[in-house]
Amino acid sequence: MLGDSSLKYRVREDCITGWLLKVPVLIAVGMLVLFFVVLTAKSWPLLTGGNFWQVLTSSEWLPSEGKFGLWPFIIGTIAVTFLTMVLAVPVSVLAAVFLNEFAPKKLKAMALPVIDVLAAVPSVIYGACGVIAFIPMVKALGGALGINTTGRCLLTAALVLAIMVIPVILSIVRDVLAAIPQEAREALLALGATRWEATYHVVLKLALPGIIAAIMLGVSRAFGETMAVMMVAGSIPEPKPSLFKAVYTLPALIADKYGEMLSIKMYDVALMTAALILMVVIAFFNFGAHLILIRLRRKY
């Protein structure tokens, strides 16, 4: 079976492949470092220009005059993410608890693969559906409440994003719950607790760090989502976000303006600063969430 099976050859082969296989490890680690270095280098003029704080907090976005205030975009991204989480977290956490603790086996076996598939549906599809269904719906809702809105607004963006994020949070929370040992529940059930009491007092308490991690991952997903938001959010910079007003997020800013960025001085620097902010915030959330999940996995 082996071409040359002398021990010396085999050991040398093992040694060489052992070194060669380290190359992909370097590439993977290098990717993260490269991303960070490239973006930092590109946004260096703004970072060190002395008024970086002003760039972050100013609302003046006039690229032709060299004024790049990122504040409306930052607050827009935060507002969309926050509202998304308010809508998505109760739904996904409670649904996950039900699926893992109370649902009959058949429902569980059917629902879980469906959720996995749904998590893979591309974001542009959610955006398209937002355009087809949610924009008219929110417009009608605004009309009913006597508010003049185009339907391309913060609420629509958050609704679409919430539906997108639900499968993500749901499947992570489900995994965390499934890892909690059965004995923990049985101990309380044996004392005469109802199933809900066992779930509430033991399972949820043990799973809390995991649920927080799942929410953090959901936040980072919502924070960085580009297409679904861009298609329904209206893209007008607003320093004070409001439910029925248009909103502009950092990812949408980058995707919208990249075409113009080479024609105006410093424009590319400002956009890459936006990308750097995005990446640092999301990497931070992701890193924290995965540390929590690793700890949990070691525990159980």
Binding site: L32, L39, P251
Partner: peptide, 28 residues
């Protein structure tokens, strides 16, 4: 091939890379 700690570290790096939004990949 690698020690446990390095494997964990690379795994976390991969997870963080997974989480980075595609618009940042596009910009890079």
């Amino acid at each position: 091939y690698l020690s446990e700690n390095i494997i964990t570290a690379v795994t976390v790096i991969l997870d963080v890379l997974w989480g980075i939004p595609s618009i940042v990949y596009g910009a890079i």
